[in-house]
Amino acid sequence: MTTERVDVLVVGGGPVGLFTAALLAARGVDVVVWERRTDPPTGSRAIGIHPPSLDAFATIELDGPVLAEAARVHRGTARSRGRPLGTLTFERASDTHPYVATLDQHRTETLLRARLDAASPRALRTGTTLTALDRHRDHVDARGTDPGGAAVSVRAAFVVGADGARSLVRDLLGIPTTGREYPDRYVMGDFADPEPAEARTAALVDVGPHGVVESFPLPGGRRRYVVLVPDEDLPVAADAPDPQLASRLTAIVAARTGVTPDPATCSMLSGFGVRKRIARRVGTGRVVLVGDAAHEISPIGGQGMNLGWLDAAELAPLLTAAVASGAPGPWPQYARRRQAAARRAARQAEVNMALGRPLGTVAAAGREALLRTVLRLPTADGLARTYAMRWA
């Protein structure tokens, strides 16, 4: 078995790993990505792309292709039982991108793959699974298997673990996590957009007494609905969603908001629970973690994938310099900044979840009054910047 030599091995070819590799390749770093999946990306899953991520995409000329396909969310409107409480506008949240973009994750990943391939053909090795890491003073040896089960080996100056919340890289390093499980359970589905024309570029959050319903415009005249549900019997993502589950979801949306999506137009249906996990360390020697491998937060608020992209944007120039100089990498400074960002996003997600939980009649009325007041204050622009991740 021949050992391949590279500057950086990225483990995980999802959206964060692909962006990390594309940034490095654009800087002339010799990079390889091991991705265990063999199939091309599918499914809508994470959809939100915030202004700082679009700015980071611009460094590799990815912002244009993404925005050519994406829907743009210009404002967020809070409702209760279908009645408006107030609106946040994103027009002053960013000088470069006064909106949040939405795009199906499989399209974002496909565009990232194309950008990586343009900078470094054959850098992405699908069907390749990591099995072991051997760390040394000036390099890391990674072993794995290729799509046929044969052994493969890479000697890298650095390894980036971008392999998600159940990170094998993190486990092989023996890095523990802290966090908690939340009781909240959600079902999300994509439908033809039933909202009136004036709401087609708005994120809508209905915080009625029976639990939150969030919705976001998607490309192609579709809308993503995210619904807090009382049970734990959650569906899994499916290309052909169960018609009965789709009807149940639309019935909940109708009962809480007064708007009824057409269940026959459902193109994706999935359920998820919520947990928070923060790695105690994000770097050990010449191995560093990014994205969910370093910090998993609630999907409510749509910031988790963006946190990973912003990890990559900060890490790439540090790694490039370390490859050039032979330095072991400045992980403590990087770790402090990125884990602080993750903790802030996690706290914001916790607030979002709390605002959407079921309440009694009196408490729900109090919540409505609070939101009306907050959304009318001069500080609402700052709140919009927070939701648009301008702090990250």
Rank of each mutant, 00 (worst) to 15 (best):
A132H: 14
E91P: 07
A25D: 04
L23H: 02
T38W: 10
R281T: 07
Y99W: 15
Y186L: 09
L289V: 05
R135N: 09
L173Q: 00
E350K: 07
L23T: 02
A324Q: 13
L24F: 01
T320Q: 12
V159S: 04
L245A: 15
L383F: 07
A365R: 15
S153K: 08
A340D: 12
F191C: 00
S298M: 12
G127P: 00
V159L: 03
W391S: 14
A324Y: 12
R27V: 12
A354W: 14
T178N: 13
E232N: 15
A294F: 05
R200M: 07
G14N: 05
Q303W: 09
R286C: 06
V205S: 03
Y334N: 01
V10R: 00
L88H: 01
A251W: 10
A114S: 10
H74K: 12
R36F: 14
H210F: 07
L204I: 05
D117Y: 08
R107Y: 00
L62A: 08
R280H: 15
R344Y: 09
G17V: 02
A264G: 11
A322E: 05
L112E: 01
V140K: 05
D39C: 09
V205D: 00
G302D: 01
M188V: 14
V227I: 02
V259N: 00
V362M: 11
A363M: 10
L383E: 03
G301Y: 07
P330A: 11
V288E: 02
E198L: 11
G271D: 03
P330Y: 08
P332D: 10
R115K: 14
T379A: 15
A202Q: 05
T128F: 06
V32F: 03
L377C: 09
G220A: 08
R125H: 13
R107S: 02
T257R: 00
P65A: 04
L204A: 02
D184H: 15
D7K: 04
P196Q: 06
L377Q: 11
V287N: 03
F272C: 02
T42M: 08
